[in-house]
């Protein structure tokens, strides 16, 4: 991984960039002790252990990455502050699940930076993984690039397709396969309730 003087702008751009840029940025967040230790310390200070802290840190990276890509981060704080807000939000949810009888006191300012994060439930993940299995790895690759906002031409170049039009057709056909799976397994309606 490249050594870069990461600032917020570069981090954000890299997360929104190519697969390798994203990996560099996320690797930086993962290995930078200040991001990690802050997360673990917080969780430990709020009734968790080191493993809970590790888990919260990794879940926060996933949510953070998703929120940046989905334009949920509005630039009202630094990225690290925003990340930390996700850690707090995540741990707050976990704590309530683990010890519903206890109340986790969050200070007022901890609510201010609402991370607007969404977790996919384990039940839904199980169902979605079944759907993805039907697609095969080629389709998953196409859809991964699509979800990362690669242009059709970039998808064509990456997957060595003859044209952007071909990439579009393949992406469309892959999404159709997903829809077909959902249509055949209508319990998806229960999962979105």
């Amino acid at each position: 991984m490249r050594n870069t003087d990461w600032d917020d702008k570069r981090l954000q751009q890299a997360i929104l960039g190519s697969t390798s840029d994203r990996n560099n940025a996320l690797h930086h967040i993962f290995t930078d002790l200040s991001w990690k230790s802050m997360s673990i310390k917080y969780v430990r200070s709020k009734g968790g252990n080191e493993q809970d802290g590790e888990d919260a840190f990794q879940e926060a990276i996933i949510l953070f990455d998703r929120n940046i890509r989905q334009n949920r981060f509005k630039g009202e704080s630094s990225l690290q502050t925003y990340f930390f807000a996700i850690v707090k939000w995540y741990w707050w949810g976990q704590f309530r699940k683990k010890r519903p009888q206890e109340e986790l006191t969050l200070q007022k300012e901890e609510y201010v930076e609402g991370p607007d994060a969404q977790l996919i439930s384990q039940e839904k993940k199980y169902y979605l993984r079944e759907a993805l299995k039907q697609l095969g790895s080629r389709c998953q690759q196409v859809l991964e690039l699509y979800q990362l906002h690669y242009s059709m031409q970039e998808i064509a170049n990456t997957l060595k397709l003859s044209s952007a039009e071909m990439a579009k057709k393949e992406a469309y056909s892959c999404r159709k396969k997903l829809k077909t799976f959902f249509a055949k397994h209508p319990n998806w309606k229960n999962l979105v309730k």
């Binding site: 990996n23 996320l26 690797h27 993962f30 290995t31 990794q58 990276i61 996933i62 990455d65 998703r66 996919i120 839904k124 993940k125 979605l128 993984r129 759907a131 993805l132 998953q140 859809l143 991964e144 699509y146 979800q147 990362l148 999404r175 997903l178 829809k179 959902f182 998806w188 309606k189 999962l191 979105v192």
Partner: peptide, 25 residues
Amino acid sequence: DMQRLEHESLELILEDKLRANMKGW
């Protein structure tokens, strides 16, 4: 709802990949 679910499927591809990367890191 269905299109949202599709998105969540695509997000799951990215999530699983990121989890695998973190395991390696």
